[in-house]
Amino acid sequence: MKKNSIRTVIFIIFVIFFILIVLFPFYWMIVSSISPQVELTEKPPHWIPQEPSLKRFVNLLFGGEGGNAARQRVFVSSLITSVIVSVSTTIICLVTGTMAAYALARIRIAGVMKILVGILIAQMIPMIVIVIPLFLFLKGVGLYDSRLGLSIVFTGLMLPTVIWIMFGYLKTIPTQLEEAAIMDGCSPFAAMVRIVIPLSVPGLVAVGAFTFLNTWNNFFVSLVLTASRAKPLTVVITEFSSQFGIDYGLMATGGVIGCIPPILLTILLQKHIVSGLTAGAVKG
């Protein structure tokens, strides 16, 4: 019994240590965002701000002193852009990606998997080299600096991963059920929609979260492919942070705001993210 309680204590210490290391940077970012600049350069650091203020948040979100209506408009519009682009990218990815994954998992097509792996590997090419052709492509089809253009690009960038993971996930679902449905006179497409899709909801949730996060977090592609009309939040954060030089407090404020949606999503979907991604990735 005694041995067990020592173990428990060690375990608890370990967990606390783990949590501290993971959370400390977040804590410091929040403290930095609410501390006045003069406090940030104190030695030793003020771990708890003496004069915390939400001034920076108010300025960014609502204009406030020194800010203006135009800047706040930019911020709100970028927030809307980020939401629209991330949501629609996720939807298009899930729809087209699942359809493709289903076809690959269920219907024998020679060489297709090889192509898929090829695309996955081709994605390893640095973004820097791809971004200018992408720019030209979007300009060519008249979608530069538009939410639609951005969503199409992100869909393309995310699809190989989505297909790969969904392919792995669909492989874990036994085919007997669909076969039975088809025997009963269901069309293969209907069988997919009615039988397979409901069964793969956990995988869909995980892949959806993954797509959403990656789209939301993207910076470089968005920076180059958008201008004033379709800038997402990550791009605008860096703009605010440099408006007055590189104020660390403001950078931290931008950071906190930019982290809120991904963190909320993670909290809501944590169960599915890990299990879904593991199932897809490991069995793929």
Binding site: M29, W216, T234, I237, A252, G255, G258, T266, Q270
Partner: peptide, 24 residues
């Protein structure tokens, strides 16, 4: 569950923010 959420946080935040954070 809470621990799992915490462990997911560093992975979920934008790389831009990650860079800013650590530079500071």
């Amino acid at each position: 569950g809470a621990l799992r959420v915490i462990a997911l946080l560093p992975w979920a935040i934008p790389p831009v923010v990650n860079g800013i954070l650590w530079k500071w």
